[in-house]
Design a binder for these strands. Sequence first.
DNA 1: AATGAATGAGCATTCATTCAT
DNA 2: TATGAATGAATGCTCATTCAT
Lengths: 195, 195, 195, 195
Amino acid sequence: MARRYDPERRQRIIDAAIRVVGRAGIAGLSHRTVAAEADVPLGSTTYHFASLDELLVAALRQANEGFASVVRESGALTDPRCDIADELARVTGRWLAADRTGVELEYELYLAALRRPALRPVAAAWCEGVARILADRVDPVTARALVALIDGICLQVLLTGGEYDAGYTRDMLGRILARGACPEVAAGHGAVPVD
Amino acid sequence: MARRYDPERRQRIIDAAIRVVGRAGIAGLSHRTVAAEADVPLGSTTYHFASLDELLVAALRQANEGFASVVRESGALTDPRCDIADELARVTGRWLAADRTGVELEYELYLAALRRPALRPVAAAWCEGVARILADRVDPVTARALVALIDGICLQVLLTGGEYDAGYTRDMLGRILARGACPEVAAGHGAVPVD
Amino acid sequence: MARRYDPERRQRIIDAAIRVVGRAGIAGLSHRTVAAEADVPLGSTTYHFASLDELLVAALRQANEGFASVVRESGALTDPRCDIADELARVTGRWLAADRTGVELEYELYLAALRRPALRPVAAAWCEGVARILADRVDPVTARALVALIDGICLQVLLTGGEYDAGYTRDMLGRILARGACPEVAAGHGAVPVD
Amino acid sequence: MARRYDPERRQRIIDAAIRVVGRAGIAGLSHRTVAAEADVPLGSTTYHFASLDELLVAALRQANEGFASVVRESGALTDPRCDIADELARVTGRWLAADRTGVELEYELYLAALRRPALRPVAAAWCEGVARILADRVDPVTARALVALIDGICLQVLLTGGEYDAGYTRDMLGRILARGACPEVAAGHGAVPVD
DNA sequence: AATGAATGAGCATTCATTCAT
DNA sequence: TATGAATGAATGCTCATTCAT
């Protein structure tokens, strides 16, 4: 009994869900685990969220902001003189190093959206969020490609257990940004022969 | 009783697992669902695969081949005169269009490696497999970036429900390839400079 | 459906567990057997007891009381003039004769503590419970030895299928009590010397 | 294939079973665990032992000798001048300290014999084995009581997780041996008043 | 004589959800 | 409104045993 009239309980449950997903993955999210983590009665979670999916969407929508805010807080990107490739590579490295839990959680969102259409808008917002921040410096198409490349590089690091290589990332982002730097090659999309 | 001596049972279980994941996602894969799909007794699945993870690894290893074989079969990549960016963009488009279920399955298994270390080596093999096919035409670092970018673009398509844009993809792959030709940028990061 | 709101269910499950162990041994105790015996749904047993060990502790705690209460009810022990050895031997005999099933159950749960640390505190309480009853008449060290000897004798009877010999038991308990009166022997080992 | 004609396989399986029971208890003994421990094919265990019980009896019969042989090897007991109580207490302490696995295994035998009549002769042999060794120095009845007391004391140590107290053990064994030392008290089996 | 494959029963446990209060 | 109790289904997994070879 006791704990009636707890207006922030709903929020506390969401926060707990984020911690649970961060720790054990979406597969580890259940009414029980989240109730235990939030220190609320089991019935409370089903009362505030009609289904687990509803809770999951609320949680992921909130957790969504990790990378975007890291990028936004990197004031450098707004400085027109900074090297975007270098700065993005650095920021990505910091993000990967700082809080692996948060990183895994955001990619878990990707995994989940694959099967749950309800999550697709949330996943789409992730991409757009980052792209919009870059919109002041690069055209939208390039921004989207930068996000895609960062995504792909991060996935390779996370999935293969490899080290993140900031120099490599900077160079590859640089290539995307440097459209036209080597006009004669880019023009024809020619292959780069190895020998 | 009845069905003793079924030498291909192990393979049949793997095939059934792939069908189950394709239909219901990894979350839908259980000893029971796969046993029902393969039409074998429950005990048979645990006999042939000591754990679900082991079955998942076998399934991922087999499903893994989808994109790689599409790329490999695109004989064009071995033709030194073809435009790699254009060809890769076209092949990717064909793959995405042909069998969305297969694509989703491949990415779901791929992303699952995030939480299941047992799957990581197989996920890593995915990247390397595609990169190796490109190895005849581009240096390894560039190959890895191409794979990363394709990964990122495919994910955006799958997750946002957007259309696949072959022209955009070709251009962005082209940028990565273009600068692969500029030794002063690639230098120092294991790139194989073009002489 | 049907049987919601059954406030004594928890106790009924414990009682059922004791019956199951009495009939089939600890090895025969499972959520399923106890649920069937208590006539409750399977989920009910796991709801009330988070693990089988927890149920076992509750059962042992309850079954535990058999010998202790027989001793306690033997009012004679509180009579300063009675012969403790004789009375303990008689009480032990009565306990062994009365309900062999109960005795075996008590020893089975007792011995199970060997492998299940969760049961150890309850097993320890068994010893202390009996020892405490004797505390009015003998020093604590002697009490512990009396309990140990009774334990050993009962085990021999139970395990070898031999007959219980009250005279032999009385004599041996008597020897332990007799030397309790010789301070020079007991001294130095926490014995309470008789002044 | 390969390993046909392995005349010692039966014995190797028994040895493996003892190790398994010592490590994980009787509950941990299965055809699978013992086959893995013995490094023989699963079918081999069922071939050599028609049932698990048969293997268990064979294993316990062999493991049975632990304490008895420790006592026997303590040559001191055959020296008429040695203090039996002291020597037994010391030997018991050494046994408990040396190899807790072996100790637990022997008591596991007790637990099992409670429910499996097939094991009772084995358990009875345990008691008699030790008693027989003492037969040269004390009368059979006293020998049995010594064994019972040692049993009870060991159980208390094992079950309550307490420390073994050699001095206490020597004193209590001494009381059983010292029949008649305090004739006036022993005669009447009088109680030992605390105050 | 020996064994790998097979299988159906059983295990402890977790679960989303329902519902009477 | 909020919740503890309840429950049936499902989970991964282990098992003793059988049996064709």
